[in-house]
């Protein structure tokens, strides 16, 4: 059975086409949804793509979280529907309080754009179930504000509840730097308690075809295709 995927486009999104293509690659019926829309069109899975929504004005994701579509995204998330925020999408999910913490200016101040080594830690999510726990991946990051920050209490809770989905690790050889932005606990991605809402800074959608160098990120997309049938979104039930 196929999955309907909604890729939300905000003004300033720039990884929307890659996310759509990656979802289509695994056989999903993927469509764009505009940020002013109020319905996800019956989508099973929602992707908030990377980019610079609203020019990152005020704070990354601070304005996008109030876009009309976000009410539908919240209902979908609260009904247990899968939501993946990539990079700017992760920032939006934090600003919307669908995930805890915040993404702050990189510790080194520079925009970091390169592949980084990460391990997949939580695999009980609709986006990482295709990976074995501890799988090591090389995924590209491209951000200036990717330093995950949370109170130590929140960080400890994320660790205790196993909600760290991706973690930056030292490269091999270990001379290759790990954590590219100073994130607390080397966190590269987290989930909500239930696991259906996931936010990550790396861009798996950019490594989904061996022709482009790697398909190590494909698992984020095959996961939601093969996972048990997702919870039907509330909006289709209430129509």
């Amino acid at each position: 059975m196929t999955r309907r995927v909604a890729v939300v486009r905000f003004p300033g999104s720039n990884c929307d086409a890659d996310a759509l293509r990656a979802a289509q690659t695994v056989g999903a019926d993927a469509r764009y949804v505009w940020h002013r829309d109020t319905s996800l069109g019956g989508a099973d899975v929602v992707i908030l793509p990377g980019g610079f929504s609203y020019g990152d004005y005020l704070r990354s994701g601070a304005i996008a979280r109030f876009s009309p579509i976000m009410a539908a995204v919240r209902r979908h998330a609260e009904a247990g529907g899968p939501v993946l925020g990539i990079c700017n999408g992760f920032q939006i999910l934090c600003e919307a309080h669908l995930l805890p913490g915040a993404l702050m200016r990189n510790a080194g101040l520079t925009f970091v754009s390169r592949p980084v080594p990460v391990t997949v830690e939580r695999t009980t999510t609709p986006f990482t179930s295709a990976y074995a726990p501890g799988t090591r991946l090389s995924l590209p990051v491209a951000h200036g504000e990717g330093r995950f920050a949370a109170t130590e209490d929140v960080a400890r809770m994320l660790e205790a509840e196993g909600r760290v989905v991706l973690r930056y690790v030292k490269g091999d050889p270990a001379a290759e730097p790990g954590n590219p932005n100073g994130s607390a606990h080397d966190i590269a991605g987290i989930s909500n308690a239930e696991g259906n809402v996931v936010g990550i800074m790396p861009h798996p959608e950019r490594v989904t075809n061996p022709l482009l160098g790697s398909d190590e990120g494909l698992g984020f997309f095959t996961s939601f295709m093969t996972a048990a049938s997702p919870t039907p979104p509330m909006e289709s039930a209430s129509r």
């Binding site: 005020l58 704070r59 601070a62 304005i63 109030f66 934090c94 600003e95 805890p100 913490g101 915040a102 702050m104 920050a149 949370a150 109170t151």
Partner: peptide, 8 residues
């Protein structure tokens, strides 16, 4: 609501 992030 908007102008400051209560987390940071």
């Amino acid at each position: 609501r908007l102008l400051a992030n209560p987390v940071t």
